[in-house]
Design a binder for these strands. Structure first.
Lengths: 216, 216
DNA sequence: ATTTCAAGTAACTTGATGGTTACTTGGCAG
DNA sequence: CTGCCAAGTAACCATCAAGTTACTTGAAAT
């Protein structure tokens, strides 16, 4: 039952490794070209695997695509859970994540464009993760770190927008900023901006009364 | 030289109309499926035009795609110029525009994914339009309507992010908000949120001194 | 009226591409 | 040792889709 674990190197037959190779090649190909643009032959070649194996393990192109998406999503969900509370920190963290791993953003984008109508891949898990995120924002609100005047859903949507947009629209970002998104200079400046801008989510500095503390 | 202007209906030959039909069909097809996913035959069919005409007028699929993009961009640029100053107003306006015309956002998205590396379509004009937009923000800053502490480029990027994101990522938006982007309820709520949130761009209410009025 | 050319049509070519067939081979259970 | 099946290979096929060829036709200009 256990892997043979050849003393030197890997055995010629190695289903797990092959599967991994295909998935990793598929991730690159799909992120780069989307579903319609991706070429099954290209994936096989990248993976240095016979094309037939791809069908052996995943059935067809679409199944493979969905599996790639599912894995990436799961990876990110795990990250999301490790986050503490501060909006400034979250903004910086997610912006950094988007810059470091543009493939992830691109996959989300391909998904948005393609599966627009269809039900989401892995919807249940993603909805649960989102709800946990919303709960975290509510906690910050009760702790007074985030303004209670805002609906947590709107806050989360705003934060996602601010962090993902540059990686999602590098051409527009470059047009506006004059630098490519990949430029460390841009990333540094943007992080600084986001940290300051995070103040927008904080409660106003106790103006006169404090009557609307429990607003939705 | 002038159009014949048949007394009743349109003449059988009508190059302008045909060109229009093709462009409008292409817009829909490209917005729906992207460049790689779009089918030339589908465009011809949608336009109720012989496929050959498409090559007659536009040379090939890619030229047609670029022409479609160019036209949409130009349309939006014109809109942008009509805008007055207030961030709250701009946010609401552009958010509404994105919701009303998801095809436009989708085209930008396809462009982002496909032409990632290549030079932008119509880059010169778009850069100029962007610069005019930045200039308008600077004016607002000197008038004290927008905080002078922010780099105008970062402000513009933030505003674009906030307005375009929902239309660009309807699946994530729905996950977060619980409603589809097309839902008027969502659009109303979001507009209200954005209007309030626009305060984030305003200068702080004159705390102690007013020394940094000319920043950047 | 006749010429001329853009506008328009139908059928075809050619290459790419997703998926399959038919086969071989490594390695474990019995 | 041997039968068996998952893992793996090479060659193939059917289809689809971009782009072309070769033709016809409407109507403006002379």
């Amino acid at each position: 039952m256990a892997r043979p674990a050849r003393t030197s190197g890997v055995s010629l037959r190695n289903p797990e490794r092959t599967r991994e190779r295909i998935l990793s090649a598929a991730l690159k190909e799909f992120a780069a070209n989307g579903f319609a643009g991706a070429r099954v032959d290209a994936i096989a070649q990248r993976a240095a695997v016979n094309k037939r194996m791809l069908y052996h393990y995943f059935g067809n192109k679409e199944h493979l695509f969905r599996e790639v998406l599912r894995l990436k999503m799961a990876e990110r969900q795990a990250w999301a859970e490790t986050l503490s509370g501060d909006p400034a920190e979250s903004l910086a963290f997610w912006f950094d994540a988007a810059c470091r791993d543009p493939d992830w953003v691109r996959l989300l984008e391909w998904e948005a464009l393609q599966e627009a109508n269809r039900r989401l891949i892995d919807e249940k898990k993603r909805r649960a993760a989102t709800n946990r995120g919303l709960e975290r924002i509510r906690q910050r609100q009760t702790r007074g770190q985030v303004s209670a005047e805002f609906d947590p859903r709107h806050v989360m949507l705003a934060m996602r927008s601010l962090t993902m947009f540059p990686a999602a629209f590098p051409q527009l970002t470059r047009l506006i900023m004059g630098r490519p998104v990949s430029d460390p200079m841009f990333q540094k400046d943007r992080t600084a901006f986001l940290k300051r801008f995070a103040a927008a989510f904080q409660p106003p500095p106790a103006r006169s009364s404090a009557k609307n503390d429990l607003a939705k």
